[in-house]
Design a protein around this nucleic acid. Structure first.
Length: 422
RNA sequence: GGAGAGAUGGCCGAGUCGGCCGAAGGCGCUCGCCUGCUAAGCGAGUAUACUGGGAAACCGGUAUCGAGGGUUCGAAUCCCUCUCUCUCCGCCA
């Protein structure tokens, strides 16, 4: 959520900055809500001040006959207050839900664009391997090695669900452990294992709700949602808190499965592990001082990149343009890993700075010292990495002519010494 | 699932038959004093949000004692609903 005072004072600027997202923003109703709200507020508050004053006087007058008309008067005032408060509640509710639908303002360094074609590649790492044979896509490799079972996954649940088998399951688990160990032991994140279902408040705080409910799995009987990313439970750890400035930056790493409906991508990436309704991810989340957040974004990106570097997987980094930027983010770097079986780069991580947007929705603040004013922190998060897609990248990049797949060195110990699949 | 207890400021904890309770007291913390260091001691201060005024320092108003409703001129205090926590029993990985 954006700062109401900031919008009030910079209405046109905000509008033009939001237009860069390609959204049809119209802040004219902002003015209406805002002035109506303040009008009602002032009217109600002066009546309350009067009532408080007179009520206090009533309590001090001992002669009861003298207070009857004052009481009658205040009865009327109270009735008026109630009706103003009712109107005010209405206005505030509508104002609030309106504010929750306004996306974040892109950062000044975010490239302006009208489609994903305007994203900017800022870095390439690793050598794209050459094969003396036609590299196969991971779904073929996985099936022929009998480690991925798409048919039975679909039987158990439905389309976009996959069964991992034997060494395949082990590889997924190895990657989760490897990533968590790397981020906790070497990058100083604190490991968290959060709930995989969250309530509506948590989803609203990070920005999934109210606008993107269609993308979420909702439970029947309770108003809970399956998490689409660990970002949601982890960011909400500090919802409603004022943390000590000296504790910043706070870094958390968490493994969770992620559940997404993938509404609107019917027919896209139907084969293989790329687009699943359930997938595993190790997520990095940071709570930082506002002044540090863009530096922290670079560090976060580097932490995620290192996973690919250690695994020896070629990738590139993309600076997302305003048209491709997520609802809550001010700036996002995507990491795309090279997939030889599909002869393309695919997103494997997305590292974003949300500024104070989520912090304001979630009311997460920090304070330096006792007498300092609390201020909103900045939140960031990034995948470190999407585990299923890392399996995909390993299968495709490390495939051999004989159909086997080599396991990257860093994973040998996590695979019980196994160096090759098949 | 059954029975019971509770939810007050950073923490602990008081709150009388509703009125001067944003809320006693203690701890903690901050600043100052004092003691040759430390400890102790003394004094002052110590919530948040919205809102009006002001360049600002700051001053005023309103709200907040788990959440939402109700009664009342007036509610932390009375009534209703909900949420959460704790204890015991049952069930269960």
């Amino acid at each position: 959520m954006l700062d109401v005072k900031y919008i009030r004072e910079n209405l046109e600027k905000v509008e033009s900055q939001l237009k860069k997202r390609g959204e049809n923003v119209n802040l004219s109703s902002f003015r209406e809500f805002d002035s109506r709200r303040r009008e009602l507020l002032q009217e109600g508050e002066s009546l309350k001040a009067l009532r408080n004053k007179v009520s206090e006087e009533i309590s001090r007058i001992s002669d009861k006959s003298q207070v009857q008309d004052r009481i009658a008067e205040m009865r009327e005032v109270s009735r008026k207050i109630k009706s103003i408060d009712d109107d005010l509640r209405d206005v505030e509710e509508n104002f609030q839900s309106y504010l929750l639908t306004i996306p974040n303002i892109p950062h000044s360094t975010t490239p302006v664009g009208v489609s994903e074609a305007d994203n900017v590649e800022i870095k390439k790492w690793g050598k794209i391997p050459e094969y003396p044979f036609a590299p196969r896509p991971h779904w073929e490799i996985g099936e022929s090695l009998d480690i991925l079972d798409f048919e039975r996954g679909a039987r158990i649940t439905g389309t976009r669900f996959t069964l991992y088998k034997g060494v395949g399951a082990r590889l997924e688990r190895a990657l989760i452990n490897f990533m968590l160990d790397l981020h906790t032991d070497r990058h100083n994140y604190v490991e968290m294992l959060p709930p995989f279902m969250v309530n509506r408040e948590s989803m609203t705080a990070t920005g999934q709700l109210p606008k993107f409910e269609d993308d979420l799995f909702h439970l029947e009987g309770v108003d809970y949602f399956l998490i689409p990313t660990a970002e949601v439970p982890i960011t909400n750890i500090h919802r409603g808190e004022i943390v000590k400035g000296s504790d910043l930056p706070i870094r958390y790493a968490a493994y969770t499965p992620c559940f997404r409906k993938e509404a609107g991508s019917h027919g896209k990436d139907t084969r293989g592990l790329i687009r699943q309704h359930q997938f595993n991810k190790v997520e990095l989340v940071k709570f930082v001082r506002p002044t540090d957040s863009y530096l922290e974004l670079d560090l976060l990106l580097a932490d995620a990149e290192q996973v690919l570097q250690i695994l020896g997987l070629p990738y590139r980094v993309i600076d997302l343009c305003t048209a491709d930027l997520g609802f809550s983010a001010t700036k996002t770097f995507d990491i795309e890993v090279w997939l030889p079986g599909q002869n393309t780069y695919r997103e494997i991580s997305s590292c974003s700075n949300f500024g104070d947007f989520q912090a304001r929705r979630a009311s997460i603040r920090f304070r330096d010292g006792e007498q300092a004013k609390p201020a909103y922190i900045h939140t960031l998060n990034g995948s470190g990495l999407a585990v299923g897609r890392t399996v995909v990248a390993i299968l495709e990049n490390y495939q051999q002519a004989d159909g086997s797949v080599l396991i990257p060195d860093a994973l040998h110990s996590y695979m019980g010494g196994l160096k090759k699949i098949g």
